[in-house]
Amino acid sequence: MEKLVINVPDGKSNIIKQVLHSLGVTIPGYDIPIKGDYKKKLLNVAVWPEQDLKEIEEATKALNNFKAEEW
């Protein structure tokens, strides 16, 4: 096995660790998924109200009901 030392920009080390770990690289001290700003951003995903979802579904159905004109 080869040992590699890399310099990573501030704020990017968690992403680099995640990518390397997914490729099978052993990283000392990296046992759990990242818990930084990335996880906070994922947990802050907006939820659409049911009314908005119904309107989107209705618009999709209406769009699918269009028929091409015959020439």
Score class of each variant (00 low, 15 high):
residue 10 D to T: 08
residue 3 K to Y: 07
residue 23 L to Y: 11
residue 43 L to T: 02
residue 14 N to H: 06
residue 4 L to W: 09
residue 51 Q to L: 05
residue 70 E to R: 00
residue 26 T to M: 08
residue 31 D to G: 15
residue 59 A to C: 01
residue 20 L to Q: 08
residue 66 F to N: 03
residue 47 V to A: 14
residue 34 I to H: 02
residue 60 T to Y: 07
residue 5 V to I: 11
residue 7 N to V: 13
residue 55 E to T: 06
residue 18 Q to K: 13
residue 17 K to Y: 02
residue 69 E to I: 07
residue 17 K to A: 15
residue 28 P to I: 01
residue 9 P to I: 06
residue 40 K to A: 15
residue 2 E to F: 12
residue 26 T to D: 11
residue 70 E to H: 06
residue 24 G to K: 04
residue 21 H to C: 03
residue 62 A to E: 15
residue 22 S to Q: 10
residue 14 N to I: 00
residue 45 V to I: 14
residue 12 K to A: 10
residue 2 E to T: 11
residue 14 N to F: 05
residue 65 N to T: 13
residue 49 P to I: 15
residue 28 P to E: 14
residue 69 E to R: 05
residue 57 E to G: 01
residue 28 P to C: 04
residue 16 I to S: 03
residue 10 D to H: 02
residue 26 T to Q: 05
residue 53 L to W: 02
residue 50 E to H: 04
residue 62 A to G: 00
residue 28 P to D: 09
residue 17 K to H: 11
residue 35 K to W: 05
residue 54 K to G: 01
residue 11 G to M: 05
residue 66 F to G: 01
residue 57 E to D: 12
residue 18 Q to G: 12
residue 19 V to S: 03
residue 46 A to K: 14
residue 52 D to V: 13
residue 55 E to M: 07
residue 17 K to T: 05
residue 57 E to P: 00
residue 12 K to Y: 10
residue 15 I to F: 10
residue 46 A to Y: 08
residue 38 Y to L: 14
residue 3 K to V: 13
residue 59 A to G: 02
residue 54 K to H: 08
residue 64 N to I: 05
residue 26 T to A: 13
residue 31 D to A: 03
residue 12 K to T: 03
residue 63 L to G: 02
residue 38 Y to Q: 09
